[in-house]
């Protein structure tokens, strides 16, 4: 799976000169791409101090906070987009953070590794061990992932919560996956509102 492809898709989605809040922005790579290509007003929240240094070196505005309680300060709909890319599965209370993201952002971009990827299924089935894949390259004892969800889990959840999925793209090893994404995609990316 290519991270660049995911970034390309998000960059394609995000509108020119919009405001973007990236939750768990890491070293700020995605945000700086968005600033460069889409001239967005960017803001990041990140829990790792080292990552903050990288963001600041890239000229980004970033807050050293925990996103689980870092959104309370923002007014409703204060960003055009809130991004939850590859962080969603690592937070203690994803439901609460998604609710907050939907409150603060007009649209929310959600991207996460698909646990129902066929290779994961095969590894569990044949090896009897927790799967290790390129989108989830960790062992059970060192994974930052707290929640394991599939593309269908997420779409089910959105249906129950009446969250509107505006767009979705599924990414596999060699690009976009259109056929049976819950089986063949390593990553799902959605815009919800």
């Amino acid at each position: 799976m290519s991270e660049n492809l995911a970034y390309k898709i998000i960059t394609y989605w995000v509108e020119e000169k919009s405001s973007v809040l990236d939750l768990g922005c890491g070293d700020g790579e995605l945000l700086s791409i968005l600033v460069e290509r889409k001239n967005v007003k960017a803001m990041g929240i990140e829990i790792s101090e080292q990552a903050i240094y990288s963001c600041v070196a890239k000229g980004l505005s970033v807050l050293h906070e925990n996103i689980e309680h870092g959104l309370t300060g923002y007014a409703d709909k204060s960003f055009d987009y809130v991004i939850l890319y590859n962080t969603f599965q690592e937070i203690k209370n994803p439901a609460a953070v998604l609710d907050e993201a939907l409150r603060v952002g007009k649209k929310v971009v959600v991207g996460f590794p698909n646990f129902a990827y066929y290779k994961s299924r095969l590894q569990i089935f044949f090896n009897g061990r927790v799967p290790v894949t390129s989108s989830m390259p960790f062992q059970w004892y060192n994974t930052p992932n707290l929640h394991f969800l599939s593309i269908l889990d997420f779409t089910d959840y959105c249906n129950i919560k009446k969250i509107k999925i505006e767009k979705s793209v599924f990414i596999g090893k060699s690009g976009q996956v259109k056929f049976l994404p819950n089986l063949f995609a390593e990553m799902g990316i959605f815009i919800v509102s």
Binding site: E49, I52, L60, L63, H64, G73
Partner: peptide
């Protein structure tokens, strides 16, 4: 310091915050 950060968020002011370990 986080109170200042919070006010920046509410006011939409451009802020960067780091708690140095």
């Amino acid at each position: 310091s986080k109170e200042i950060v919070k006010a920046c968020k509410l006011a939409g002011a451009d802020a960067t915050y780091c708690e140095i370990d």
